[in-house]
Nucleic acid binder design. Structure first.
Length: 189
DNA sequence: CTTAGGATCGCCT
DNA sequence: GGCGATCCTAAGC
């Protein structure tokens, strides 16, 4: 199935996909690891880039699911999203943190940091470590340079408020792997 | 430990 | 002209 990848149906709501992505391995040109933190966004959500309709920047999120949406944040960083639902809905999942597994030396070199816990502990860091830029915007996640592998084993997922937004603060659409030392911030207890 | 400021791009008011 | 789905560094308590 076209929308099924790594055991996840990307045509589902972004809040569903965001939870299911915790524990999934993502590689870009063979470098990456296990997703431990995500956030869901949706066109009905005032905190989403897509809330006010399609623009050149967010067009990828209105495209087909299981594709990448990469945007520039604060003019400096890149952030990686996976598009959800059917084309035209403007929904997606922000990849906020990864547990580094393969290509750790490459990530260290790209990030200029030694501590593994700091390699991918934030959306901008994830893209720097994995080498994601606008060149990957709108690419199909089924094909290289992307590779997604299903979650293996049990994962405990916690939900809480999203980070760095000023609207819809009460929506609990941040998802983390419980107890992971690789999060951008610990989940509030 | 917390807070503040700078970097710098695309879109909005 | 303002403001982010951010990160890093420096300074203060």
């Amino acid at each position: 199935m076209k929308n099924i990848l790594a055991g996840i149906d990307f045509a589902e709501d972004s809040s569903i996909v965001a939870q299911q992505l915790i524990g999934v391995t993502v590689l870009v040109y063979g470098v990456g690891g296990r997703i431990v933190e995500t956030e869901a966004y949706d066109a009905l959500d005032p905190a989403s880039h897509t809330f006010s309709g399609i623009t050149p920047r967010n067009a990828a999120m209105f495209g087909p699911p299981a594709h990448a949406y990469v945007y520039r944040s604060y003019g400096i960083h890149w952030c990686l999203n996976f598009v959800c639902r059917e084309a035209g809905h403007g929904a997606g999942v922000l990849i906020r943190a990864i547990e580094p597994l393969t290509g750790i030396e490459t990530m260290r070199a790209r990030r200029g940091v030694d501590d593994v816990r700091l390699l991918c502990s934030g959306p901008g860091k994830v893209c720097q470590a994995l080498g994601v830029t606008h060149l990957q915007n709108r690419l199909d996640l089924h094909a290289p340079p992307f590779e997604l592998r299903p979650r293996e084993g049990e994962v405990t997922v916690l939900a809480g408020p999203r980070i760095g937004i000023s609207k819809a603060m009460e929506v609990p659409w941040r998802f983390v792997q419980a107890g992971s030392p690789y999060l951008s911030k610990p989940m509030r207890s």
